[in-house]
Design a protein around this nucleic acid. Structure first.
Length: 398
DNA sequence: GGTGCAATACTCACCACAGATGAGA
DNA sequence: GTTCTCATCTGTGGTGAGTATTGCA
């Protein structure tokens, strides 16, 4: 059985920001959203304005950042970090011809966009998206044609806009975005913060404090050092009703706790840019290759699961004031989610060259196999030929 | 509730070899 | 103290076997 990566439980690098049920394949700059093929085609085929949104493919390496370069040699779209890491691995890679990525043509998704989407990477069932309720609910609403453009543009990240009308009187809104699926992804953070809030609300009660500490310890320290990812060991037992109650409290205290994400906001007031999820968090940490210099930013300096988990809370949530501005919370939510994903996939590569060698090494049932003289000669010939034809270099001593 | 079975999820050893490291001349 | 040579160790990724967990009857 193959090893399965767990990207939030589904093995994908970046889940579609809209349906959250499929891997994202494109990044829409206008919406600051990662979209799967189906949602992309549907949203951007809705009207002319939406169809003009500039989109780029998601990095094929990390699958978590918009691609910045197209490597012609690898025929791969890569983000800046992956491009840097991959193409600095060896002289051969360094000579790969890369060009800045071009936005996906607006004509890619026409009225028949769904079909074309099906031929793209990351095909998935559109019906599944419809099941999430969130999108279909909004799409099905009858809206003015003038509003349609804006609705299509803001459909993704501002469910608050649509839901605020209901205000906090509707407690169920706390679970609303698509039948609670979205909120569920936030449970981990909320769970933690619920403990945190409990601490602040315990009025100095030592017993409560100890309970908080033990609960926090249970939450923070993974039972296994690798792969556990610091997830709540037992949601039902650890959170349960308290969590739901806390969610309701969150709704009351922070109406904007709902997912009104504004990626363009410049500052959170806490030193963390609100747009960090697409800038800071996507930096060198994604690839996990050990940099030559020590990273000063705590948010990108964790390479071990447990330590990273602890530091995450130590550096952010542990120091939170009792009442957070909504943007602070949203920024931390984003930051937490990114770090969570990164912890999951993270594997520190100490020697990129060895990685490059390992990837090119012949295998037999996954095991490294001896490279015969014939293979070596053939490789050398092919490399030489390739170099002469395309200008690509070869790694000496291969 | 306890037991057995199947399905699923997860962990880890294996392999070759370039490069890093350390000891000795 | 510096340089060179040699031997040993380290780390890299895909696969399959083994183990753990979960769900169901």
């Amino acid at each position: 059985m193959m090893k399965q990566e767990d990207g939030g439980g589904n093995g994908w690098g970046k889940v579609c920001d809209t349906c959250r049920s499929a891997p994202s394949t494109v990044y829409c700059r206008a919406d600051s959203a990662f979209l799967c093929t189906g949602c992309d085609s549907r949203i951007h085929a809705a009207n002319k304005m939406a169809s003009r949104h500039e989109r780029v493919w998601v990095c094929e390496a990390c699958e978590r950042a918009p691609a910045a370069f197209l490597c012609k040699a690898d025929a791969a779209s890569l983000c800046a970090n992956c491009d840097s890491d991959i193409h600095s691995a060896n002289p051969l890679a360094r000579r790969h011809h890369r060009v800045p990525i071009m936005p996906i043509p607006a004509t890619l998704y026409g009225p028949q966009g769904n079909d074309s989407g099906g031929s793209m990477i990351g095909v998935h069932n559109l019906n599944e998206e419809a099941d999430d309720g969130f999108l279909t609910q909004d799409v099905d609403e009858t809206i003015d044609e003038d509003d349609e453009d804006e609705a299509a543009s803001w459909l993704l990240f501002n469910p608050v806009k649509n839901s605020n009308n209901n205000n906090s009187s509707n407690q169920s809104n706390g679970m609303m975005f698509g039948g609670g699926e979205v909120v569920d992804e936030y449970l981990d953070l909320v769970d933690y913060n619920s403990c945190q809030d409990n601490q602040y609300n315990c009025n100095g009660n030592n017993d409560d404090h100890h309970q908080y500490q033990s609960a926090q310890q249970q939450f923070l320290v993974p039972q296994k050092s690798y792969g556990c990812d610091g997830e709540v060991p037992d949601r039902s037992g650890f959170i349960g009703k308290d969590h739901q109650l806390h969610l309701q409290q969150q709704q009351q205290h922070h109406p904007s706790f709902q997912l009104g994400l504004d990626y363009e906001s410049s500052n959170t007031g806490y030193g963390y840019p609100a747009s960090m999820s697409h800038s800071v968090s996507m930096s060198s940490m994604d690839c996990g290759i050990v940099p030559d210099t020590t990273m000063s930013d705590a948010s990108v300096s964790h390479h071990r699961t447990s330590k990273g988990t602890i530091d995450l809370f130590a550096s952010t949530a542990m120091q939170l004031p009792q009442q957070l501005p909504p943007m602070d919370r949203e920024a931390r939510v984003l930051r937490y989610r990114e770090k969570k994903k990164n912890r999951k996939f993270e594997k520190t590569i100490r020697y990129a060259s060895r990685k490059a060698y390992a990837e090119t090494r012949p295998r037999i049932k996954g095991r490294f196999a001896k490279r015969t003289d014939v293979e070596s000669e053939v490789d050398q010939m092919l490399s030489t030929e390739l170099m002469m034809e395309s200008g690509y270099g070869i790694v000496p001593s291969f």
